[in-house]
Design a protein around this nucleic acid. Structure first.
Lengths: 242, 242
DNA sequence: TCAATAGTGTCTATGAGACATTATGCA
DNA sequence: TGCATAATGTCTCATAGACACTATTGA
């Protein structure tokens, strides 16, 4: 501890301190649309404007721990969510309060019916990404959202993340396909999708069960759950022409 | 300005300030091996130990600008280099001096014969990555190096970055193939590699010239330079079994 | 001549898109 | 019966790996 104090005087205080925050792009699928969680800012700057949820990193936390805490606070209940670091946005002019470093994350969650407002009575709602991109978000959050969206679209090509958008552990191939269709914004041929996912070793595991209680017609489908594969290889492809 | 001062008192000082640094994994190919630039630390902590080059971000800089400055300082001359953000490493226990945020970058450069030592008289040398990974680097730099290496190996699959390891603007397909072979650590079939790179639209552009002055035997090869393509699609594949 | 590298061409296996066909369920 | 979704199967094209073969140079 005494050494730490000594070292603190060494050269670290020659530099202007900065503040560390985390921001997240929390995606879910709501009413058939890929949506992102936005909060209305309760304080300055950008008061009253919409922003990505986030907050300051506590002195005893890593950013990973901080984002985990934020996720719990925003979604109220403990969800089987997923978060990974996206990119860091920093500079002297991002925030009028000073030099702010924001470590941005991408997080995925099944639909949450009522995300709770934060401590400071912020409103929190899921907004379809198409709409959110057109809004004038606080800070540089439009750019962060754009980057986060691209990450999600790219990453489900080779990582088994799509099932995280589904509420149940077991799901039908049609449900899984719908997730891809919504995120990529294009239709996929059911038979080809089926062949593809089932050909990846250990990606899905058949439960042997069949989905009961269906709303509209159609053959009852088999239920699958995630297998042990950590990578989709060869990856799916979302674009041929693009 | 008065508003800024007011806002500064709003809530930003409720949080422990942190220090912002950048670190880079600067890769090059030296003597047929993928190598990374390491510096010997001149000051505490980890004095005398090897580390990735980096430094504190100045108050008026973004991390991107900071890494650009570091690159210039380390390589002395202005190189056609490339740098992109890798990941941010932060936490209360990474550095005995306090809470340090390090934004890590991946940078690529053609071989630099004599990288200069930094202001604090540090030694700077390129070390083959295989060796560097076995060393006990300062801080969490072993992890950063591992992550940077994986990024390079993955990214040359779909981004036209490999030519950045070559000194000249124009190069032969054999030279380009060798870059891939060194980075991936596996042999590629020359004819298949040729077919692959030439089939990607606008990836390479034939100069019409032929390489003169060859050391050992072999047919003289045509010279190519980078085209306008920003993406290699469909991507190269480095692994089938893996 | 031989060795070494560049460049061309061929065969084959794999994977993905397109799409037909059958199966099963509800209204 | 009609419609909707699930599941199976087939055809074809594009791509990549393996590899044979020719071309061109220096030693």
């Amino acid at each position: 501890m005494s050494e730490k104090s000594f070292l603190k005087n060494y050269n670290i205080r020659d530099y202007e301190p900065v503040s560390l925050t985390v921001d997240m792009t929390l995606f879910t699928i709501k009413s058939g649309e890929l949506s992102v969680l936005l909060v209305e800012r309760g304080g300055h700057p950008f008061q009253g404007q919409w922003a990505l949820p986030g907050g300051f990193v506590e002195p005893n936390e890593t950013p990973d721990e901080s984002i985990e805490r934020e996720l719990q606070e925003e979604t109220a209940i403990t969800l089987a969510t997923y978060a990974e670091q996206l990119k860091t946005y920093a500079g002297p002019n991002r925030d009028p309060r000073g030099y702010i470093v924001s470590v941005a994350y991408v997080a995925l969650a099944p639909i949450i019916e009522s995300p709770v407002a934060g401590d400071d009575a912020r409103k929190a709602v899921f907004i379809p990404v198409e709409e959110a991109l057109k809004m004038d978000l606080a800070f540089d959050h439009n750019i962060i959202l754009q980057d986060g969206l691209e990450r999600v679209r790219a990453k489900i090509e080779y990582a088994p993340l799509a099932p995280l958008f589904l509420e149940e552990d077991s799901f039908t191939l049609g449900e899984l396909r719908t997730v891809y269709e919504i995120i990529w914004g294009k239709r996929l041929t059911p038979s080809n999708f089926r062949r593809k996912v089932l050909s990846v070793e250990n990606l899905l595991e058949a439960t042997g069960e069949v989905l009961q209680s269906r709303i509209r017609g159609g053959r009852r489908s088999e239920l699958y759950k995630l297998g042990t594969a950590v990578e989709i290889y060869p990856p799916f492809r979302r674009n041929d022409e693009n």
